[in-house]
Design a protein around this nucleic acid. Structure first.
Lengths: 147, 147
DNA sequence: TATTGTTATACTCTATAACTATA
DNA sequence: TATAGTTATAGAGTATAACAATA
């Protein structure tokens, strides 16, 4: 891959990542939460993890996760309950108010994506998804090795 | 575009945006700046904008931009000079230390991209870039209309 | 009067270090 | 001793509102 080739990939990739993150942030904001709060709620949709497990999913320090969860709990979006086996640990659970928010933000973002990607034909969209999935897999592999 | 189709696009798109933003953040951090500081420095590579112009590029309030610039100036990465025509305005300029940082972070990220995208053939890469560019254009058009 | 930029204030988010309680 | 989580502290980033200087 030559320099010019790389430069064009970097440019469109960075732009895509920025505008889509900005969209997500905007939709989260409309649902009255920050992007990080939305990420937290999204993780809790099908899990009841401990703070420790959340640090892995979110890639944050336990003190940062503790703060995120406490602020979410203060708003009634999640709840903390005692762990069944380990008396030191807590389980974090999504509350109905939190689920309503994450569902609303998701619907808004999905509608954005549907509108934006309608510029491609069904075949082109399928091709884009297939190629992008391979990129995501390659990124994970690269991270696993290079770190 | 049916629901299943949309869901797969949303999933890979969100994942791609997240991991690439995380990469950029990591590389910025290695270059000793935050992602927002790196964005600021990147904009200044070929421009000497006012604070007002920067609010458009960054999508932030003028008070937020003011703070970003002041913190960057405190570290010697940028400088503020009087505007030639308008006595109220200032011009923000990239200093050599700032240029070194943005160049270093850029090189690291470009190397990441080169490694990751080598999983695709040259033809596939070209196809991915072409499709993604159309998506970015459609996003901008959608934003211009829907807002 | 309107505009440019800064400042005061308040909040979220983040990490490090110290701490408490449990294992 | 080690681990799970919270708290104290410090700093970046963000927005709103009030402000000063200039247009």
């Amino acid at each position: 891959m030559d320099e010019e080739d790389t430069a064009s990939v970097v440019e469109v990739l960075a732009r895509l990542a920025f505008v889509m993150t900005a969209r997500l942030e905007e939709r989260a904001s409309e649902a009255e939460v920050s992007l990080q709060q939305l990420r937290l709620l999204g993780i809790l949709r099908d899990r009841r993890p401990t703070i420790n497990e959340l640090t892995v999913h979110l890639g944050l320090d336990k003190s940062s996760v503790s703060g995120l969860v406490i602020r979410a709990e203060r708003r009634g979006l999640v709840s903390r309950t005692q762990h069944e086996q380990d008396g030191r640990a807590v389980r974090v659970r999504l509350e109905p108010a939190g689920r309503a928010i994450v569902d609303a933000a998701d619907a808004l973002f999905a509608a954005d994506v549907q509108r934006i990607f309608s510029t491609l034909s069904a075949a082109e969209r399928a091709r884009w998804v297939a190629l992008s999935q391979r990129v995501v897999v390659a990124e994970a592999a690269d991270r696993g090795v290079s770190v």
